[in-house]
Design a protein around this nucleic acid. Structure first.
Lengths: 218, 218
DNA sequence: CCGGGTTGTGAAATCCAGTTCACATAACTC
DNA sequence: GAGTTATGTGAACTGGATTTCACAACCCGG
């Protein structure tokens, strides 16, 4: 967990400080801010990924601040604090751009669950561009490599020439190229008899492909 | 279900015909064969994907036939019928290349379950090289496209320039290129206000990516 | 209606995955 | 051990994917 800052915007000092404290006690980096106006300044410097915002404040209210924040920082997540738990409040908050909401009064656990859920979603976005993901998908992008994985999943293990014939590819060096690729990505390996077989990682990948296929063709 | 032929090789006429009948009653295309020698001839013509083979037969036994079959048709699945259910029998059968086994006596249900399972595995192999799969994975292979999908999953909808800024890519035409690609693959589309958003297909794809990621990083 | 931001196109340039080719070494067969 | 098949490597080549560039139509506020 890096220094992921959470900004808490609330004019009620007690509530604000109590939220910040709860968050800090749970290893989040949080800071407070007592009005929408100062908040706008503060995000310029700290650029938080998550904002907790009271919708009722003197001056500019939370509802008014939200679109401004979203406009300049579309990837910021906003958790709105609404005074009473009514369906209307919740719907209104979500409609105007909140990603989640908390109804006063809320328990410490409600707060933490909501914060964690939203940070989790943020994390997902960055995961998609992670290097591991990149290699894996590049590997899977090639139909020959997928065929190889599928064949090995079926036959458990296979020697080079058998595999080549099975795939009905005339040029054996082409197969070799893709085998090397798969080997480098740790999806397959060879035993002493030079037979290729899936690694545990490779098997996971095959599982993934099956899942993918079911999803896509559903 | 195409005309997927299953070849039943057993010298015991009663058992053989009963197996074929059970299979045919369950919409499989099955045919019988009373010895290993005739089986070798028959596979040349029918090239079944699945073979059910008795290991005890006069003349060439099932154990001897198996490697011959596997050599010429490595993608054939073999279900071995062993006389008694002992661990040794089962292990021996699997070791010499059987993909599955049935111990006599078995119930109609055992047979069907085993056959279905093995056909299912065969089906998977061909799925992996299907065209739909190809497009989808090629699309996902590019990190920028994944980022776009992830961003749209988070923000629900976004206009062109906002998206470009969000991704921190200086050249907007590059983003446009990938957007066009995603559009062509029906993963995103634009509403009247020109805002991009995920299509139902695109959402499925994002789900897939999340699954993939969880699998990979587990 | 002027100027600036937005949204987009098509062609040229570039890059890189994938293919092909020429060759080499081990392994097995007779 | 001679010949054949299996397994593998590296370099050159090819084509498609990606990037860059030059340009243009659009919309919109002042």
């Amino acid at each position: 967990m890096t220094t992921e800052t959470i900004l808490v915007i609330d004019d009620d000092q007690d509530l604000r400080e109590s939220i910040v404290e709860i968050l800090e006690n749970n290893d989040f980096a949080a800071s407070g801010c007592d009005s929408a106006e100062t908040a706008l300044e503060k995000v310029k410097v700290t650029t938080p990924r998550l904002v907790i915002l009271d919708n009722m404040m003197p001056g500019m209210g939370g509802m008014a601040l939200m679109p401004l924040l979203k406009k300049d920082y579309p990837n910021i997540k906003i958790i709105m604090i609404t005074a009473f738990s009514t369906v209307e409040n919740a719907v209104a908050a979500m409609k105007s751009g909140a990603d989640d909401y908390l109804s006063k009064p809320f328990r410490r656990e409600d707060l933490l669950v909501t914060v964690r859920r939203n940070l989790e979603e943020l994390k997902f976005a960055s995961q998609l561009s992670e290097p591991g993901m990149d290699d894996a998908l590049a590997c899977l992008a090639n139909p020959i490599r997928r065929q190889i994985l599928a064949t090995l999943a079926r036959e458990k293990q296979m020697r080079f020439m058998n595999l080549t014939r099975e795939l009905e590819i005339s040029d054996h060096t082409k197969v070799n190229f893709h085998l090397k690729n798969l080997k480098m990505n740790n999806l397959i390996s060879q035993n002493r008899e030079k037979a290729y077989h899936l690694t545990p990682e490779g098997e996971k990948m095959v599982d993934c492909l099956q899942l993918l296929f079911k999803k896509i063709s559903s």
